[in-house]
Design a protein around this nucleic acid. Structure first.
Lengths: 116, 116
DNA sequence: GATTGTTATATATCAAAATGAATAACGCAT
DNA sequence: ATGCGTTATTCATTTTGATATATAACAATC
């Protein structure tokens, strides 16, 4: 039998109490990578361009190395790409989240099961 | 040396995707218990009475057994008290959170340490 | 029955966040 | 120079959530 309650947990990486990375920002980075532009990525995610731009700016600002290189003007009007360091952050964050989720699921199975 | 990034994670218990318990609600339950009233508890937490009342109502609604018994009228105008089941939920939630936080700290020490 | 302090409820106001729209800046191409 | 599409920036609007305010309901006490 399955109890109707479940544990959920969200994880983020902060710097000085300010959000650096979370699930939404990582998804944004992925979309920027596959689309080559902040604008296209924001549309893909149904997020306003301004918010996407703000996230990118803040992430780059908090990071010791930029995660996103932005270019304006040029052949296609410009665009954005993920740096090697940014790609590294994506992979590490998702690794951390995967481990975390596993632990949370364990918690739910081991503890909540015997509560309800 | 201490890296400037740290992992934080928040946990909650949901029912059908709706929040049942989280840190704030548990704190509210504790304050109701020690104050004997929703109004006093809300003031203690600098939370509006309406929000406190809404939380209590929703928790009771989602729970198989009420967490809070509310009385109105009478000698002191009424009041609220935590049920045995509610007390149980408080303790179990805080136990879960404690374990979770330990796991998150481990994650931060083991993983983030070698990132930055 | 009047008093009292809380719960219960509705409405209005405020604050913060997200969104949309508009425009400038940019640099390569033609 | 002009066109193009994106980044960069500002401002007004909308949305969302929380808060403040007011009032009724309630039940024991006096």
């Amino acid at each position: 039998m399955r109890h109707p309650f479940n544990i959920t947990a969200t994880l983020e990486v902060e710097k000085d109490g300010i959000c650096f990375l979370n699930a939404k920002r990582i998804e944004l980075l992925r979309q920027i990578k596959s689309n080559g532009s902040i604008l296209a990525a924001s549309k893909e995610m149904c997020m306003s361009y301004q918010q996407a731009w703000t996230f990118v700016k803040q992430m780059n600002l908090l990071s010791p190395l930029p995660l996103v290189i932005r270019k304006r003007g040029g052949i296609n009007g410009g665009g954005a790409e993920i740096t090697r360091f940014g790609q590294d952050m994506i992979e590490r964050f998702e690794k951390i989240v995967a481990i975390h989720q596993t632990k949370v699921r364990q918690l739910g199975d081991e503890i909540l099961f015997c509560i309800f």
